[in-house]
Amino acid sequence: MAEVQFSVLEKDILQELMNIGFGQAAADLAQVIDLSIELSVPDIQLFKACDLREHIATEVDSDQEFSLVEQYFLGKFKGIALLVFPAKAGKQLVSLFGLQDQRSSPSYHLELLEKEAMIEIGNILIGACVGKITELLNDVVIYSPPRAMIQDLRNSALPKNLFAPSSMAISMKTVFHFEQQEISGQLFLIANQESIVWLKSALHAFMEQYE
């Protein structure tokens, strides 16, 4: 497969677009979940798909236990979103979402509640970020149900039908931070080679509005 390149200009535009998108996402998130959240300036990198897991594993502090939520998105922009939390954040998220009140319901115990809290915040956060970017680029995506895992980064493989090992992938990383609760984590949006090609043309179309 031919390598796809991203020019410095294109990267700058994407970064700017993500800044706008994440700014709006953070503002809307505050409305939706009643919590203020800070999203850092995104870091954009292109990789060979086969190197991605390794890349993420090195970006995540491996001394710490962490939990992971993964969710696929499918549109012209397609790929996988990975949300990485420190393992201890699960408990904080449970109280943040007021889920502890449900403990009396059948089949609820704390580990399940932690998983549920992570899945819910993951779904909302991923949806907000992916939704805003694709909205600005005039695309609409659908999502798979999110899955929560614990420390499974290195072992789980990216699906080959979406990410051929020799193809390129683009990773957009942001650090998020719930201000009142001191919970931080990382969000990776990873799109496949097809999406990169689309992304390039969508970015140029986006710029044309301002030219």
Binding site: Q31, V32, G98, L99, E120, N123, I124, G127, A128, E135
Partner: peptide, 21 residues
């Protein structure tokens, strides 16, 4: 209840999907 309402809000705010497994 809060979870259902939160997910409704996120659909209208971001065009998000929500899953109730």
């Amino acid at each position: 209840e809060p979870k259902f309402l939160r997910n409704c809000r996120s659909v209208f705010a971001f065009g998000n999907f929500a899953f109730f497994s």
